[in-house]
Design a protein around this nucleic acid. Structure first.
Lengths: 330, 330
DNA sequence: GCAGCTGTGGAAACCGCTTTCCGGGAGGTC
DNA sequence: GACCTCCCGGAAAGCGGTTTCCACAGCTGC
C-alpha cells in the first residue's frame, strides 16, 4: 500500500506539503511542488487512507442508516432517498439491517458510534416497549454526547430530529374517504400491536370511524408483512371494506381473496398504506395513502446534518389515493 | 469522547492492559484488572474508535457493496443476501448506488479502496464498453494490489471472483419451454444493447429459437426498467409471445397490454427473467427464470472473503418457472 | 536600509489504538 | 536454593495522516 510518505519522498517534499496538496487544505502550495506531488501521487497510484484521515481529523465522511429490511420496498425507497441526499453532500453510507430485531438496532447505533460516523439515521417504526426504547435512547445519547448527529424516520420517541409520517391522520382521512363510498362495516388488518406505526394507523382509522358514528371495525393482528396480510385476511368476517395497515399486507390480502375466489372490489374493498411504487402495476390497483418516501429519507438526512441544537420534528402528511381496489356500495 | 486512555486511567492500569481487555487480544489479563477495566469502560461509556483500530490493525471490518439501484428489488435481494452473509462474519456494510452510471462504479471502488474496506462486491451487469471496463479493472487491480479482495455478481469481465448467472442458458431454456407450448412468433424486449446481462439474455433466447428452426424474434431495445418494458411492448408487432429480459420490464409490458385491452395470456403470452419475490402476487402470475438472488449475493461475499489467490467463477443456473402469463397455443 | 509583513516549506506533535518487547514475580524442577 | 519457565503488566514504537508552529525567504513602506 502506498502511503503519503512514499509520495512525499518520491516528490522530494515533506509530508506536510504532500498532505496539503493532496487532501485539501487551507494552505497554499507553490505551483512547482504542487505539480511534483501530483505527479508522484499519480505515478504511485496513491489513495489516502481514510481511517488515518478520520483519526487525524476527528471526523469521518460516513453516515449510517439503519433500516428494518432492505428487501421491503418501503425501506428501500427511504434508504434510497437518504443515500441520494448523502451523495450530494459527498458522504458515504453504511447501511445496517435489523430484520426487525430492536436489539440489533441498538447494536448498530453502538457500532456506528464506534465508527464515529457523522450521522445516524434510524428508519422505521418504533416499538411500544419502553425498556427497549429507553436503551436505544441511552445509546443514542451516548453517541450524541460524542458529537454525533442523529435523526429518525418514524415516531418521535427518541428525542432526536424526526420525520414523522402522519399515520393517524392519514388513516383517518382514508377511513373518511372509504366511508364516503358507503362502507360501514370495516376490518383492519392491524399488524403487530407493539409496532407503533401499525398501532397508530389502526387507531387513527378506528377513531375516524367512531367520529362518523360507524360501528367499530374488526381488528385483526398479525405480522407486518405480505404473509401477515394474507393470513389476516382469512379471519375477516362480514366486512365490506378491509384496511391493511401497509401496502405489502394489502397485497397479501388481495392474494388471499383471489385464491378463494372473492372478487375485489366487487365482493370486498381493500385499501393499504404507503403507496409503494413497485406495486403500482398491481391488479387491482391499490387504494392507499401515499407517503413521499424518498423525500422523507432525504429530509431525515438533512435534519441529521443540520447543526442546530434544538430537536425538530416534521410531520409528513399522507395523501389518500383511491384506486380500483375499492368501490362505492349502495 | 471517552478514549481508551481515559478508561485505563480510571481503572488504574496501562493502556496496553485496557486494550487487551476491551478489544479481544490473544493475551490474557488477570481477573482483578480485567474486572476493573470492564467496570471503568462501562461507567465511562467507552466506545472504541474504529478508525484508530483500523489504522493500528491495518485492516477494517467493513465491506463495500456497489449496486445500481437499491429500489430495484433485484438489487435489493442481492444486497440483502450479501449483507446477511456479512453479518455472520461480523462485518459491516457500506453500500453505494451508482444509479447505473459506470463512472460512479469506478469512483466507488476508489473510495472504498481509500476506506481500506476488507472486500468490495460489484453487483450488477457489466457494460459492453471496453474503455470503461478497462478503467474499472485498473481501479480494482490497484485495490487488490493493496491487499483488498473483490468479487462480482454478473459477467466475468473484471478478472475477479464472480458469481455469474447463466443468462444465456436460462434464456435458452425459457425459449425452449415457450416453443414447446406452441409459440413460434416471438418478440424480445431486449433492454439496452450495451448492458451485457440484457444482451446475453436476448442472445441466448434468439439462439435457442434458431436452433429449433423457428423464425428470428423481433428485437426491441429500450431501458432496462419498468417504463422501458412498457414502452417496448407498444412496438411489438405480430408476436404470440413476448420475452422481457427482466421481470420488472415484463411487468411494464403487462401494464401496457392491460391498458390497451390486450389480454394476457389469451391474446399474447409474456415472460420475464429473475423471479423477483415482490412480484409473486402479480396478476397474471409471471412466467420467468428464477435466480436465487439472495444466495448469489451471499455467495459473492464468501468468494470475496476467500483467501485463495486463484480467481473463481461460479455459474448459477436459472430455473424456468411457467405461470399464468403464458399459455399453450394451437 | 531596516522593521515588519506575507507567503510558503518543513519538523514534529498528535489523533486513539495495537502490539512488540521487556521486566518482574510465581511456580516448577532437580 | 538455583535455575527455568510461564504468565501477566507496562512502556513505547508504530499505523498514516493533519495541523501547529517555526524558519526563511522576498516584499513593502517609510
Amino acid at each position: 500500500m502506498v502511503t503519503l510518505e512514499d509520495v512525499a519522498r518520491q516528490a522530494g517534499v515533506s509530508l506536510a506539503t504532500a498532505s496539503r496538496v493532496l487532501n485539501g487544505s487551507t494552505r497554499q502550495v507553490g505551483a512547482t511542488l504542487r505539480a511534483r506531488v501530483e505527479r508522484a501521487a499519480d505515478e504511485l497510484g496513491y489513495r489516502a487512507n481514510i481511517a488515518a484521515q478520520t483519526l487525524a481529523r476527528g471526523a469521518s465522511n460516513v453516515i449510517g442508516i439503519v433500516v428494518h429490511d432492505l428487501t421491503d420496498p418501503y425501506f428501500a425507497a427511504l434508504a434510497d432517498g437518504a443515500m441520494r441526499a448523502a451523495a450530494t453532500h459527498g458522504l458515504l453510507v453504511m447501511v445496517g439491517t435489523t430484520h426487525r430485531d430492536p436489539e440489533q438496532e441498538i447494536a448498530y447505533v453502538s457500532t456506528l458510534n464506534a465508527q464515529r460516523v457523522r450521522a445516524v439515521l434510524l428508519v422505521g417504526s418504533r416499538v411500544a416497549d419502553p425498556a427497549v426504547t429507553g436503551r436505544l435512547r441511552d445509546e443514542l445519547a451516548r453517541y450524541q454526547a460524542g458529537g454525533g448527529r442523529a435523526a429518525c424516520v418514524g415516531q418521535d420517541l427518541l428525542g432526536v430530529d424526526t420525520v414523522a409520517p402522519a399515520n393517524r391522520r392519514g388513516a383517518a382521512a382514508l377511513a373518511k374517504a372509504l366511508a364516503e363510498l358507503g362502507h360501514t362495516r370495516f376490518a383492519v388488518l392491524a399488524g403487530p400491536p407493539h409496532l407503533v406505526t401499525a398501532a397508530d394507523r389502526s387507531a387513527g382509522f378506528a377513531a375516524a370511524l367512531a367520529e362518523l358514528g360507524l360501528p367499530e371495525p374488526q381488528i385483526i393482528h398479525g405480522p407486518f408483512d405480505r404473509d401477515g396480510g394474507y393470513a389476516a385476511a382469512q379471519q375477516v368476517r362480514d366486512a365490506t371494506c378491509v384496511f391493511a395497515v401497509n401496502d405489502v399486507m394489502a397485497v397479501g390480502a388481495l392474494a388471499a381473496y383471489r385464491e378463494r375466489g372473492v372478487r375485489v372490489p366487487d365482493d370486498v374493498s381493500v385499501a393499504g398504506f404507503d403507496d409503494i411504487v413497485t406495486l403500482r402495476d398491481h391488479v387491482p390497483a391499490l387504494t392507499t395513502v401515499r407517503l413521499p418516501l424518498q423525500d422523507m429519507g432525504a429530509r431525515a438526512l438533512e435534519l441529521a446534518l443540520n447543526e442546530t441544537d434544538q430537536v425538530v420534528v416534521e410531520e409528513v402528511a399522507g395523501e389518500v389515493v383511491l384506486r380500483e381496489s375499492v368501490r362505492r356500495i349502495a
